[in-house]
Design a protein around this nucleic acid. Structure first.
Lengths: 211, 211
DNA sequence: ATACTCATGTAACAAAAGTTACAAAGTAAC
DNA sequence: GTTACTTTGTAACTTTTGTTACATGAGTAT
């Protein structure tokens, strides 16, 4: 585990902190599609991503869903942080987008380290900053873009996260994450295909490389 | 100033910290409508609100605008914090919603205190948490609510912030903050009036108390 | 009073998004 | 193969939101 830590967090944390993480952290491998956090759940430890990606979703009371953003290796979940410190319930759902490796750190240590290590403090602040910026980007998309642009942005983001220009999703799955209906997505995808931007297939979509 | 500090932050900070804030902070009075922060601006100090309210707005490149949330006394601007620590440009605009009093703290002190005072650290973390939650609420509104519900929520939020069931805004101003057109707002306001929820007048709207 | 500006009301129409319904093609189970 | 199920395509229609245009009224300045 220490090697994984050094690769992903070596440039951020001093050796003493890396050692501590190595001692108290537990390594976990999560398969694609696995739900890490449900809404309303209390959280007792904080994930440090070392490989893969996690998608963060918002649900409302009626079961409506919306993709907020993705986390990648080197990231941590600021929502989780926030929940841990305040001992509050999670407001979001977290699902592994890819097979993912992470190190879980118990919350007590987290608090201790914010006093002890400046690098940890900076990391936590930076995480909050990154998450605020992602939320802003999400708001920009929902508020200022029409669905066709949002869809294209979604496809590009997904391709970037998975490092693959083939997006393995059904129209229904995309519709859920953008909080719209399958028919709307099918309609707009067909338009994008007619414009030569994508190519449609059953169960996957190819993003044309020129984009 | 020390009295203002004690009233608004006395239950959060230890005396030593209150003293330090009192020494390095500068007191400012801001009139309603004054722009505190513009998008793209660098920020060198952090505001602690002691009276009044500030609205935080997002603008896109085409001059489109959207209200994100309000800050009240006891709050600080997490975006500013975030910008200060990262030495980044502001992503938002801040405008005084009411006549407002605040204490400006230089950023160097901010960083020093996060190492020195646990109460300051908790305050900063709590601020981040609050802001993330407000952003989530904003996302909920835009993503899950239709314009009529968003409008009603806006009116109620505004009434809560100004502590007044008379909302002194024109339809055009509301349209800007909700990022829609004046005609749409006039239409929906008229519907709310017909439902007996509000009463319309030139330059102000009365929220019926039963709501 | 007259002229002017600003805020609101409303009609008529256009565009975007959501809904219902059904057909057709692909995949998996048997 | 046949059958059942999933996924996609598409038409027809509704609702919501956005746009253009113009009228009316309230307040202000001269």
């Amino acid at each position: 585990m220490i090697q994984l830590l050094k690769n992903n967090y070596g440039h951020l944390f001093e050796d003493a902190l890396l050692d501590e993480i190595n001692q108290v952290g537990t390594f976990k491998e999560i398969p694609e599609g696995f739900t890490l956090i449900e809404i309303g759940q209390y959280i007792r430890s904080m994930p440090l991503l070392v490989e893969g990606a996690i998608k963060i979703l918002r649900d409302d009371d009626d079961g409506d869903e919306l993709l907020l953003y993705f986390l990648e290796s080197g990231d941590t979940c600021a929502m989780t942080l926030s929940c841990c410190l305040g001992d509050k319930k999670s407001e979001i759902r977290a699902i592994a987008e890819l097979d993912t490796k992470l190190i879980m750190v118990p919350i007590q240590k987290m608090e201790e380290w914010t006093g002890k290590y400046k690098s940890w403090r900076n990391f936590v602040f930076q995480s909050y900053h990154n998450r605020l910026m992602e939320m802003l980007e999400t708001i920009d998309s929902i508020a200022f873009l029409k669905m066709d642009k949002r869809l294209l942005k979604y496809l590009k983001d997904k391709a970037a996260i998975t490092k693959d220009h083939i997006i393995k999703s059904t129209h229904q799955e995309i519709a859920y994450e953008l909080h719209t209906s399958r028919v709307v997505i099918s309609r707009l995808l067909k338009k994008l295909e007619n414009q030569g931007i994508i190519h449609l297939n059953r169960n996957f979509i190819k993003l044309n490389s020129s984009i």
